[in-house]
Simulated assay, not measured.
Amino acid sequence: MVGTFWDWLRGRKPLVDAFFATPVVLLSLPAWLGDAQAVPRLEYLALTAGLVAPLVLRRTFPRTVFAVVALICCVQCVAGVVPIPANMAVLMGLYTVAAGFSFRWGLAAVLTAELGAVMAALRYASGPDDQRSTLLMLSVLVAGVWILGLHIRTRRAYLSSLEERAARLERERDAEVKMAMAAERARIARELHDVVAHNVSVIVVQADGASFAIDTDVGRARQALETISRTGRTALAEMRRLLGVLRESDDAGAYAPQPGVAQLDDLVEQVRSSGLPVTYEVAGSPPDMSEGRQLTVFRIVQEALTNTLKHGGPRVAATVRLRYAGDAVEVQVHDDGRGAAADDGRGHGLAGMRERAAVYGGIVCAQPCPGGGFEVVARIPTDEPA
């Protein structure tokens, strides 16, 4: 309730300024109602109204109000009318200009007020000593109000910068969260694609083989069905592991670790059991690689063999070469299938391979071979960047 009232009041500057001008009116009442008056009542009332009335618009038109009040005080001094309590309006105008505008405007306002102090000291003080003391007192008063205005302006700028910084940090935090969510969605999408595409391709190939051999070769059909069962269980296990990461609980640790280069032998055997002859060659000694880099190598080989299964055609064979060359691992997957037909431009596998490699500063080149077949070549750095 209080916050709503202040919000309502903050949007009505004239009403607030009129409230703060009330003390000046109250200080002016005793001299107006008293019997001994240095200024006639009518003249006193007109001068007080001329000085106090502009204060209602003090924050709406600060410089104009200060100029009007200063001009009225100047005319008062030239006319020889003695100072009255309403002359404090010039100090209120000085404070408003110093607190709400740049340093140059505040300096101009304080010099104007100081000029008025000099005029008042020369006009109303009786002797040189009295003039000096009066000027000193008025100058200290003017300087104090000016410094107070500068302090308030600096404090407002500081609070405004803090609010702006907090808002910027909040926007940056939201942007980082959205980027992290997008990256995580992309990672999960790549994992799902690799897991589902590979295993389903193997299952489809084995199911087709079983359907052709079920009447003529029951043993081969039974072997194909066993491969389908084993591949399905593997796919379910990988899907369970991947989806377990998305759970809010800490049960994800119970699932199997991510596959790496050590699991390439099992992958090759799985593809061989599906009917695709695969030659697997490894050159060099494997260095220490992070799990993410090993997973990238595994997924690239898996996706390349999946494309061979899907698009290579009948009687196709593949070769997988893994070479550890110093600070990088080079992957080459070559098949002798239909070549350009392996890349129809509609899948996401090749794009996913390039995205995976780019995360670790690697490159992937996938293209048909001149003499037929299709080749995927990837180079993944093994060293973490400094």
Rank of each mutant, 00 (worst) to 15 (best):
L26Q: 08
G100D: 09
I152D: 13
R220C: 05
E375C: 06
P381R: 11
I152E: 12
G372A: 11
G260V: 05
G127Y: 09
W105H: 07
R168K: 10
A318T: 05
V195I: 15
P287W: 13
L115V: 07
A108P: 01
V202Y: 04
V25Y: 11
T112V: 08
F5T: 04
V145W: 08
R185E: 08
S126L: 04
D194W: 02
A18G: 15
V68M: 13
G347Y: 01
L27I: 01
V118M: 07
A342E: 08
G34Q: 10
M137P: 00
A207Y: 06
P128T: 07
Q37V: 00
A166H: 11
M181N: 10
L350A: 02
V145T: 04
R293E: 05
R12L: 13
A31C: 00
V364Y: 01
G326Y: 02
L162S: 02
R58W: 01
V24L: 15
R104I: 03
F19D: 12
S28K: 03
P54T: 01
A67M: 09
R247F: 01
V329S: 09
L159G: 01
R241D: 10
R41G: 15
A175S: 14
V200Q: 07
G116S: 12
C369V: 06
R321S: 10
L138Q: 13
L162D: 03
Q294V: 00
M119G: 04
H198T: 13
F66R: 02
E269V: 08
H348Y: 12
L115D: 03
R247A: 08
H193L: 12
Q223I: 00
I380Y: 05
E281Q: 12
D7Q: 11
L162Q: 10
F212K: 14
V90T: 06
Q206V: 02
L57G: 05
I203F: 04
R356Q: 10
L55Q: 06
R338G: 01
S28R: 01
D336W: 09
E164A: 15
A109C: 05
S160W: 03
R323H: 08
A31S: 10
S161P: 00
D288C: 04
A113T: 09
L115G: 15
M119S: 11
L169A: 15
I147W: 14
D336Q: 06
G244A: 07
P257S: 03
V316T: 15
Q367T: 07
G345R: 08
A21I: 04
D344Q: 04
A180P: 00
V282I: 12
A378D: 05
E291N: 03
V200I: 09
V24M: 14
W105A: 05
P40T: 08
V142D: 10
C73M: 06
G106F: 04
A120L: 12
S126D: 13
R272T: 03
P314W: 02
F101K: 14
E43A: 15
T96K: 13
L122M: 09
S102H: 11
R173Q: 10
